[in-house]
């Protein structure tokens, strides 16, 4: 309902999503974002302290083919162990959690389990009654430009994703700017679709009388 209202007033749906990037230190989270937001690759590794914030505006088509504008609020967290105590509340209310690993680094892949559990433990609403999966899990394998050093195969990564109900798996290279933009765009699109689906649920469950009233009150705005 809120969407139709916005539609009516501003012609375009507007979304703002919180996306957090987690993963072991040095897998290239900051580089990935720097490439995505500033189109710049940072050669030198400088550890992120605590968390850094980036924002990116996108135009997307939703399931009905209407253009909507999306603002991504990206939380670039520190991968280092000593900053992990800061993490707890950072995860709250995230629309998407991007688990990142380095395809050339076995340990960073094995750590995905811990990162995922960490996130689910701290971000998930503890009462099971509330909305089933309010966030999405996505995995990015980074640094695919160094193909000859690769030690985690695509197959193995995808198997892990299926096992852990991860929605999508992407491979990128922050250095070569390979698939970076596409990855984030498709993440944004997935959230839009998931949210649209969520909006329909309360609508269908609503009391038929109420729906009638609603329709008569908003028939101008109602698109369907």
């Amino acid at each position: 309902m809120s969407q139709t209202y916005v539609n009516h007033n501003q012609q375009q749906k507007k979304y703002l999503f919180k996306i957090i990037l987690i993963g072991s230190s040095g897998v290239g989270k900051t580089s990935l974002l720097s490439q995505y937001v500033h189109k710049r690759y940072i050669q030198q590794h400088k550890a992120t302290i605590g968390v850094d914030f980036l924002t990116k505006d996108l135009q997307l088509k939703d399931s009905k083919g209407e253009t909507c504008s999306v603002t991504l609020q990206i939380w670039d967290t520190a991968g280092q162990e000593r900053f992990q105590s800061l993490g707890s509340a950072f995860y709250r209310g995230a629309d998407c959690c991007v688990l990142t690993y380095d395809v050339n680094d076995q340990t960073s892949f094995e750590n995905l389990d811990r990162w995922k559990n960490d996130f689910i433990h701290q971000a998930a609403p503890s009462s099971p009654s509330s909305s089933p999966i309010p966030y999405q899990l996505v995995v990015i394998g980074n640094k695919i430009d160094m193909e000859n050093q690769r030690c985690v195969s695509q197959k193995r990564a995808q198997a892990w994703c299926t096992e852990n109900s991860v929605i999508s798996y992407f491979e990128t290279s922050a250095k070569d700017h390979q698939l970076v933009e596409q990855t984030f765009e498709s993440i944004a699109r997935q959230i839009v679709l998931a949210i649209e689906k969520q909006f329909i649920i309360p609508y269908q469950n609503a009391d038929p009388n109420k729906v009638d009233i609603k329709k008569s009150a908003n028939n101008e705005k109602e698109k369907k």
Binding site: G50, V51, F53, T55, Q73, L86, G87, A89, F90
Partner: peptide, 17 residues
């Protein structure tokens, strides 16, 4: 201002942790 607000919220959640 969304990144600025995120920073503010990070400050409070740091204390909260």
């Amino acid at each position: 201002l969304n990144t600025f607000m995120a920073t503010l919220s990070a400050m409070s959640s740091f204390i909260e942790s």
